[in-house]
Amino acid sequence: MLIAIAAIRLRDLFAVVMLFGIYSLLTAALFMNLDAVDVAFTEAAVGAGVTTVLMLSALHLTRRWEDEPRHNPLLPLLVVTITGAVLIYATLDAPLLGDASAPVHQHVAPRYIEKGPQEVGMPNMVTAVLASYRGYDTFGETVVIFTAGLAVMLLLGIQEGPQAHRGRNAIGDQVVLKVVVKLLIPLILMYGLYVHFHGDFGAGGGFQAGVIFAAGFVLYDLVFGEGQARAVIPPNWLHRLAALGVLIYGGVGVVSLLQGRPFLDYSVLAHDPVHGQHLGVLLVELGVGITVFSVVLSIFYALSGRRRQS
Protein backbone atom coordinates (compact mmCIF):
# COMPACT_ATOMS: atom_id res chain seq x y z
CA MET A 1 0.00 0.00 0.00
CA LEU A 2 2.77 2.38 0.97
CA ILE A 3 4.56 1.42 -2.17
CA ALA A 4 1.59 2.43 -4.27
CA ILE A 5 1.54 5.86 -2.64
CA ALA A 6 5.25 6.24 -3.12
CA ALA A 7 4.81 5.39 -6.77
CA ILE A 8 2.44 8.30 -7.14
CA ARG A 9 4.72 10.76 -5.44
CA LEU A 10 8.09 9.92 -6.92
CA ARG A 11 9.22 11.55 -10.09
CA ASP A 12 12.28 9.45 -10.67
CA LEU A 13 10.82 6.99 -13.14
CA PHE A 14 13.56 4.47 -12.51
CA ALA A 15 12.57 4.28 -8.85
CA VAL A 16 8.91 4.09 -9.81
CA VAL A 17 9.53 1.08 -12.00
CA MET A 18 11.57 -0.61 -9.28
CA LEU A 19 8.82 0.00 -6.75
CA PHE A 20 6.35 -1.46 -9.19
CA GLY A 21 8.47 -4.59 -9.32
CA ILE A 22 8.48 -4.82 -5.54
CA TYR A 23 4.74 -4.29 -5.51
CA SER A 24 4.34 -7.22 -7.87
CA LEU A 25 6.46 -9.43 -5.67
CA LEU A 26 4.36 -8.51 -2.65
CA THR A 27 1.23 -9.24 -4.66
CA ALA A 28 2.69 -12.62 -5.51
CA ALA A 29 3.32 -13.28 -1.83
CA LEU A 30 -0.27 -12.34 -1.10
CA PHE A 31 -1.48 -14.75 -3.79
CA MET A 32 0.55 -17.53 -2.13
CA ASN A 33 -1.20 -16.70 1.09
CA LEU A 34 -4.56 -16.96 -0.65
CA ASP A 35 -3.73 -20.44 -1.98
CA ALA A 36 -3.21 -19.31 -5.54
CA VAL A 37 0.17 -20.89 -6.14
CA ASP A 38 0.03 -20.87 -9.92
CA VAL A 39 -1.01 -17.26 -10.01
CA ALA A 40 1.66 -16.29 -7.52
CA PHE A 41 4.28 -17.99 -9.66
CA THR A 42 3.10 -16.15 -12.75
CA GLU A 43 2.80 -12.79 -11.07
CA ALA A 44 6.33 -13.10 -9.70
CA ALA A 45 7.73 -14.11 -13.07
CA VAL A 46 5.72 -11.65 -15.14
CA GLY A 47 4.97 -8.69 -12.92
CA ALA A 48 8.25 -8.55 -11.09
CA GLY A 49 10.41 -10.00 -13.83
CA VAL A 50 9.32 -9.40 -17.38
CA THR A 51 7.44 -6.15 -16.88
CA THR A 52 10.27 -4.59 -14.92
CA VAL A 53 12.90 -5.53 -17.46
CA LEU A 54 10.76 -4.26 -20.32
CA MET A 55 10.00 -1.02 -18.55
CA LEU A 56 13.66 -0.43 -17.79
CA SER A 57 14.57 -1.08 -21.41
CA ALA A 58 11.97 1.43 -22.48
CA LEU A 59 13.21 3.98 -19.95
CA HIS A 60 16.66 3.53 -21.34
CA LEU A 61 15.27 4.65 -24.67
CA THR A 62 13.38 7.62 -23.29
CA ARG A 63 13.96 9.78 -20.26
CA ARG A 64 14.45 8.95 -16.65
CA TRP A 65 13.07 12.07 -15.03
CA GLU A 66 9.52 13.18 -15.15
CA ASP A 67 8.48 16.81 -15.45
CA GLU A 68 6.71 18.77 -12.76
CA PRO A 69 3.05 17.87 -12.89
CA ARG A 70 0.97 20.67 -14.28
CA HIS A 71 -2.45 19.13 -14.08
CA ASN A 72 -4.95 20.16 -11.56
CA PRO A 73 -5.37 17.00 -9.51
CA LEU A 74 -8.88 17.82 -8.29
CA LEU A 75 -10.96 16.42 -11.11
CA PRO A 76 -9.16 13.07 -11.35
CA LEU A 77 -9.32 12.85 -7.58
CA LEU A 78 -13.06 13.35 -7.75
CA VAL A 79 -13.49 10.66 -10.41
CA VAL A 80 -11.36 8.25 -8.43
CA THR A 81 -13.26 8.97 -5.24
CA ILE A 82 -16.58 8.30 -6.93
CA THR A 83 -15.32 5.08 -8.47
CA GLY A 84 -13.84 4.00 -5.16
CA ALA A 85 -17.09 4.79 -3.39
CA VAL A 86 -18.99 2.61 -5.84
CA LEU A 87 -16.53 -0.18 -5.23
CA ILE A 88 -16.86 0.09 -1.43
CA TYR A 89 -20.61 0.19 -1.87
CA ALA A 90 -20.34 -2.99 -3.91
CA THR A 91 -18.38 -4.81 -1.26
CA LEU A 92 -20.99 -4.15 1.41
CA ASP A 93 -23.09 -7.01 0.12
CA ALA A 94 -20.20 -9.16 -1.01
CA PRO A 95 -19.50 -12.51 0.61
CA LEU A 96 -16.91 -12.44 3.34
CA LEU A 97 -13.35 -13.46 2.72
CA GLY A 98 -12.90 -17.19 2.91
CA ASP A 99 -16.59 -17.92 3.35
CA ALA A 100 -17.01 -21.40 1.95
CA SER A 101 -20.74 -20.96 1.41
CA ALA A 102 -20.34 -18.02 -0.98
CA PRO A 103 -22.03 -18.54 -4.37
CA VAL A 104 -18.65 -18.70 -6.08
CA HIS A 105 -17.87 -21.93 -4.34
CA GLN A 106 -21.28 -23.48 -4.83
CA HIS A 107 -22.21 -23.48 -8.46
CA VAL A 108 -19.57 -24.23 -11.03
CA ALA A 109 -16.42 -24.74 -9.03
CA PRO A 110 -17.23 -27.98 -7.16
CA ARG A 111 -17.14 -29.98 -10.34
CA TYR A 112 -13.63 -28.82 -11.14
CA ILE A 113 -12.53 -29.81 -7.67
CA GLU A 114 -14.38 -33.09 -7.39
CA LYS A 115 -14.16 -34.45 -10.89
CA GLY A 116 -11.31 -32.49 -12.43
CA PRO A 117 -8.59 -34.91 -11.41
CA GLN A 118 -10.51 -37.86 -12.88
CA GLU A 119 -11.91 -36.26 -16.02
CA VAL A 120 -8.75 -34.60 -17.17
CA GLY A 121 -6.35 -36.89 -15.43
CA MET A 122 -4.12 -34.52 -13.54
CA PRO A 123 -4.05 -33.41 -9.95
CA ASN A 124 -3.41 -29.70 -10.57
CA MET A 125 -6.92 -28.38 -10.98
CA VAL A 126 -5.72 -25.01 -12.17
CA THR A 127 -3.95 -26.65 -15.09
CA ALA A 128 -6.99 -28.82 -15.77
CA VAL A 129 -9.37 -25.88 -15.90
CA LEU A 130 -6.89 -23.71 -17.75
CA ALA A 131 -5.98 -26.12 -20.48
CA SER A 132 -9.10 -28.20 -20.82
CA TYR A 133 -12.38 -26.92 -19.36
CA ARG A 134 -11.57 -23.38 -20.36
CA GLY A 135 -8.95 -24.27 -22.92
CA TYR A 136 -10.45 -21.88 -25.40
CA ASP A 137 -9.74 -18.94 -23.10
CA THR A 138 -6.16 -20.07 -22.94
CA PHE A 139 -6.04 -20.28 -26.70
CA GLY A 140 -7.25 -16.68 -26.67
CA GLU A 141 -4.55 -15.84 -24.15
CA THR A 142 -1.87 -17.30 -26.38
CA VAL A 143 -3.21 -15.23 -29.23
CA VAL A 144 -3.14 -12.13 -27.02
CA ILE A 145 0.54 -12.70 -26.32
CA PHE A 146 1.17 -13.28 -29.99
CA THR A 147 -0.74 -10.10 -30.81
CA ALA A 148 1.45 -8.15 -28.41
CA GLY A 149 4.55 -9.54 -30.05
CA LEU A 150 3.21 -8.69 -33.46
CA ALA A 151 2.25 -5.19 -32.35
CA VAL A 152 5.70 -4.50 -30.96
CA MET A 153 7.29 -5.81 -34.15
CA LEU A 154 5.04 -3.57 -36.20
CA LEU A 155 5.97 -0.59 -34.07
CA LEU A 156 9.67 -1.12 -33.59
CA GLY A 157 10.62 -3.42 -36.43
CA ILE A 158 12.97 -6.36 -36.24
CA GLN A 159 16.67 -5.93 -35.84
CA GLU A 160 18.10 -8.34 -38.32
CA GLY A 161 21.08 -10.45 -37.55
CA PRO A 162 23.61 -10.45 -34.74
CA GLN A 163 25.91 -7.92 -36.29
CA ALA A 164 23.55 -5.07 -35.52
CA HIS A 165 25.17 -3.84 -32.33
CA ARG A 166 27.91 -6.23 -31.58
CA GLY A 167 30.00 -5.63 -28.56
CA ARG A 168 27.86 -3.16 -26.71
CA ASN A 169 27.60 -4.45 -23.21
CA ALA A 170 24.97 -3.41 -20.73
CA ILE A 171 26.84 -4.13 -17.54
CA GLY A 172 30.47 -4.07 -18.49
CA ASP A 173 33.18 -6.69 -18.50
CA GLN A 174 33.09 -8.55 -15.26
CA VAL A 175 34.67 -11.93 -15.33
CA VAL A 176 33.15 -13.20 -12.10
CA LEU A 177 29.68 -12.23 -13.20
CA LYS A 178 30.18 -13.95 -16.51
CA VAL A 179 31.30 -17.16 -14.91
CA VAL A 180 28.43 -17.14 -12.45
CA VAL A 181 25.94 -16.51 -15.18
CA LYS A 182 27.41 -19.21 -17.35
CA LEU A 183 26.81 -21.61 -14.53
CA LEU A 184 23.37 -20.25 -13.85
CA ILE A 185 21.94 -20.33 -17.33
CA PRO A 186 21.84 -24.10 -17.80
CA LEU A 187 20.18 -24.31 -14.42
CA ILE A 188 17.58 -21.74 -15.42
CA LEU A 189 16.81 -23.56 -18.63
CA MET A 190 16.60 -26.89 -16.83
CA TYR A 191 14.27 -25.31 -14.31
CA GLY A 192 12.14 -23.99 -17.15
CA LEU A 193 11.80 -27.49 -18.57
CA TYR A 194 10.96 -28.85 -15.15
CA VAL A 195 8.29 -26.23 -14.65
CA HIS A 196 6.86 -27.03 -18.03
CA PHE A 197 6.47 -30.75 -17.57
CA HIS A 198 5.67 -30.61 -13.92
CA GLY A 199 2.64 -28.37 -14.55
CA ASP A 200 0.25 -31.31 -14.36
CA PHE A 201 1.20 -32.09 -10.81
CA GLY A 202 2.51 -28.97 -9.18
CA ALA A 203 2.40 -25.29 -9.85
CA GLY A 204 3.62 -24.22 -13.26
CA GLY A 205 2.95 -24.89 -16.89
CA GLY A 206 3.75 -23.72 -20.37
CA PHE A 207 3.33 -20.06 -19.67
CA GLN A 208 5.62 -19.88 -16.69
CA ALA A 209 8.13 -22.12 -18.39
CA GLY A 210 8.19 -19.84 -21.42
CA VAL A 211 8.87 -16.84 -19.23
CA ILE A 212 11.66 -18.59 -17.34
CA PHE A 213 13.27 -19.73 -20.55
CA ALA A 214 13.13 -16.23 -21.93
CA ALA A 215 14.57 -14.90 -18.68
CA GLY A 216 17.58 -17.18 -19.17
CA PHE A 217 18.27 -15.64 -22.55
CA VAL A 218 17.66 -12.13 -21.32
CA LEU A 219 20.24 -12.66 -18.58
CA TYR A 220 22.74 -14.01 -21.07
CA ASP A 221 22.16 -11.03 -23.27
CA LEU A 222 22.52 -8.52 -20.44
CA VAL A 223 25.77 -9.92 -19.16
CA PHE A 224 27.52 -10.89 -22.35
CA GLY A 225 26.54 -7.83 -24.28
CA GLU A 226 23.90 -7.35 -26.86
CA GLY A 227 24.14 -9.45 -29.91
CA GLN A 228 25.32 -12.51 -28.01
CA ALA A 229 21.93 -14.02 -27.39
CA ARG A 230 20.92 -12.91 -30.84
CA ALA A 231 23.63 -15.10 -32.25
CA VAL A 232 22.04 -18.09 -30.56
CA ILE A 233 18.50 -17.35 -31.67
CA PRO A 234 18.22 -14.71 -34.39
CA PRO A 235 15.27 -12.32 -33.97
CA ASN A 236 13.66 -13.06 -37.30
CA TRP A 237 13.31 -16.68 -36.26
CA LEU A 238 11.57 -15.71 -33.09
CA HIS A 239 8.37 -14.43 -34.60
CA ARG A 240 8.16 -17.53 -36.74
CA LEU A 241 8.53 -19.59 -33.59
CA ALA A 242 5.77 -17.55 -31.98
CA ALA A 243 3.49 -18.20 -34.94
CA LEU A 244 4.38 -21.87 -34.70
CA GLY A 245 3.27 -21.94 -31.06
CA VAL A 246 -0.14 -20.54 -31.98
CA LEU A 247 -0.37 -23.05 -34.80
CA ILE A 248 0.38 -25.95 -32.47
CA TYR A 249 -2.41 -24.89 -30.14
CA GLY A 250 -4.83 -24.20 -32.96
CA GLY A 251 -3.73 -27.37 -34.72
CA VAL A 252 -4.82 -29.49 -31.78
CA GLY A 253 -8.21 -27.84 -32.08
CA VAL A 254 -8.35 -28.45 -35.80
CA VAL A 255 -7.52 -32.12 -35.30
CA SER A 256 -10.53 -32.41 -33.02
CA LEU A 257 -12.61 -30.64 -35.66
CA LEU A 258 -11.43 -33.05 -38.34
CA GLN A 259 -12.45 -35.94 -36.14
CA GLY A 260 -15.94 -34.48 -36.10
CA ARG A 261 -15.73 -33.30 -32.52
CA PRO A 262 -15.96 -29.70 -31.28
CA PHE A 263 -12.88 -27.48 -31.38
CA LEU A 264 -10.31 -28.36 -28.72
CA ASP A 265 -12.00 -31.58 -27.65
CA TYR A 266 -8.90 -33.49 -26.59
CA SER A 267 -10.58 -36.80 -25.91
CA VAL A 268 -10.21 -37.83 -29.56
CA LEU A 269 -6.43 -37.59 -29.45
CA ALA A 270 -6.03 -41.03 -27.96
CA HIS A 271 -8.17 -44.12 -27.57
CA ASP A 272 -8.80 -43.46 -23.95
CA PRO A 273 -10.50 -40.07 -23.36
CA VAL A 274 -8.53 -39.32 -20.20
CA HIS A 275 -5.34 -40.17 -22.00
CA GLY A 276 -6.40 -37.90 -24.83
CA GLN A 277 -7.01 -35.11 -22.37
CA HIS A 278 -3.55 -35.56 -20.95
CA LEU A 279 -1.91 -35.51 -24.35
CA GLY A 280 -3.97 -32.52 -25.44
CA VAL A 281 -3.03 -30.51 -22.38
CA LEU A 282 0.62 -31.36 -22.88
CA LEU A 283 0.52 -30.28 -26.51
CA VAL A 284 -1.28 -27.02 -25.95
CA GLU A 285 1.02 -26.18 -23.05
CA LEU A 286 3.89 -26.70 -25.43
CA GLY A 287 2.29 -24.29 -27.86
CA VAL A 288 1.79 -21.74 -25.10
CA GLY A 289 5.35 -22.14 -23.91
CA ILE A 290 6.87 -21.65 -27.35
CA THR A 291 4.79 -18.58 -28.11
CA VAL A 292 5.42 -16.97 -24.73
CA PHE A 293 9.15 -17.63 -24.87
CA SER A 294 9.62 -16.23 -28.32
CA VAL A 295 7.37 -13.23 -27.84
CA VAL A 296 8.93 -12.18 -24.54
CA LEU A 297 12.41 -12.55 -25.96
CA SER A 298 11.61 -10.77 -29.17
CA ILE A 299 10.01 -7.84 -27.36
CA PHE A 300 13.14 -7.62 -25.26
CA TYR A 301 15.30 -7.67 -28.37
CA ALA A 302 13.18 -5.01 -29.98
CA LEU A 303 13.38 -2.68 -27.01
CA SER A 304 17.01 -3.26 -26.13
CA GLY A 305 18.27 -3.32 -29.68
CA ARG A 306 16.99 0.11 -30.49
CA ARG A 307 19.50 2.87 -30.21
CA ARG A 308 18.65 5.70 -27.96
CA GLN A 309 17.80 8.81 -29.90
CA SER A 310 18.16 12.21 -28.35
Binding site: L34, A36, V50, M55, E141, I145, A148, L155, F207
Partner: peptide, 22 residues
Protein backbone atom coordinates in the same frame (compact mmCIF):
# COMPACT_ATOMS: atom_id res chain seq x y z
CA UNK B 1 -9.67 -23.01 -2.74
CA UNK B 2 -11.63 -22.30 -5.89
CA UNK B 3 -9.41 -22.88 -8.93
CA UNK B 4 -11.53 -20.94 -11.40
CA UNK B 5 -10.55 -17.40 -10.34
CA UNK B 6 -6.94 -18.51 -10.47
CA UNK B 7 -7.35 -19.56 -14.07
CA UNK B 8 -9.07 -16.33 -14.99
CA UNK B 9 -6.35 -14.27 -13.40
CA UNK B 10 -3.58 -16.24 -15.06
CA UNK B 11 -5.15 -15.20 -18.32
CA UNK B 12 -5.64 -11.63 -17.13
CA UNK B 13 -2.01 -11.29 -16.02
CA UNK B 14 -0.92 -12.30 -19.47
CA UNK B 15 -3.28 -9.79 -21.03
CA UNK B 16 -1.89 -7.16 -18.68
CA UNK B 17 1.73 -7.74 -19.59
CA UNK B 18 0.80 -7.81 -23.26
CA UNK B 19 -0.86 -4.43 -22.95
CA UNK B 20 2.13 -3.03 -21.09
CA UNK B 21 4.50 -4.25 -23.76
CA UNK B 22 2.51 -2.66 -26.56
Amino acid sequence: SNPLPHVLILTAIVVGVATTAV
